[in-house]
Design a protein around this nucleic acid. Structure first.
Lengths: 130, 130
DNA sequence: CCAGTAACTATGAAATTAATGAGTAACTCA
DNA sequence: TGAGTTACTCATTAATTTCATAGTTACTGG
């Protein structure tokens, strides 16, 4: 059974925010959903190279519990479940973009940073072109 | 001896950025230094309630290696070392503020989030009043 | 009737991160 | 002489996060 971290609710806004889109997979899921709009569970897993079911399922639960991702279930056989960002989820995209821009300013010149397993770069950094 | 993570340099900007100010202590150190400008090691540890020497020392090394924090050593007895933010370090403050503002919009209404051990809230959230 | 599919869950191992507690050099102050 | 100070390091343990693998239900297509 999934147990939400109650402690999170008494943390400060900065920790609350970092908890929502920090970590290894959360920002990546948010970016993929931002790009593809709607994805079934299996398609999402294919987009996220190397993620395992256990991690994807629990990470999705956290994002849903935090109101970032919406889950819509269709009662069919075989099962069908669709995931997309909520308004709250879309509202974090400017923050992620600002992080990308900031990093780009310091990080871009001295290394290759776009590797094939990181879809969010292709999305984020091309779209933040002001 | 401290070994920098080379892998970080081939990651995408979003991961690079989250690595720099994510984690349990990094954003807190950045905020305290933003507020106090300059702090000796021992004062910094006092500001960060509950941090241990081992964690503070290695976290500082990471922030220094990432160019966020500057270390200045005075050859005195007893030893004296001062820490402050670099320009790059100060440039992350707007991002941290935007995270605070975002969180505040969603998080503020339903809980107490400022607790005594979180100095960065007092700093961050009062200063982001637009 | 057996393999395949979808969307998971459960379990244990591995890896990473953080915490604990002690120790160090070279002094100063009582 | 002996405790206190500073800015750490080191070794070990604990906690957290992630990975790897297998299993489940209720079907469908061959």
């Amino acid at each position: 059974m999934y147990k939400p971290k109650l402690e999170k609710d008494i943390r400060c806004p900065l920790e609350y925010g970092l908890d929502i889109f920090g970590g290894k997979w959360k920002s990546r899921i948010i970016c993929v959903l931002a790009e593809k709009k709607v994805l079934r569970y299996s398609s999402l897993r294919k987009e996220m190279t190397n993620i395992t079911d256990a991690v994807l399922a629990t990470t999705l639960k956290e994002l849903i519990a935090d109101g970032i991702v919406q889950r819509q279930q269709f009662d069919e056989i075989p099962p069908k479940v669709e995931y997309c960002l909520t308004d709250k989820g879309r509202s974090v995209l400017p923050i992620l973009q600002s992080i990308c821009r900031w990093s780009g300013a310091y990080h871009r010149e001295n290394s290759e940073y776009i590797h094939s397993q990181c879809q969010k770069c292709d999305y984020k950094c091309e779209n933040s072109s002001d």
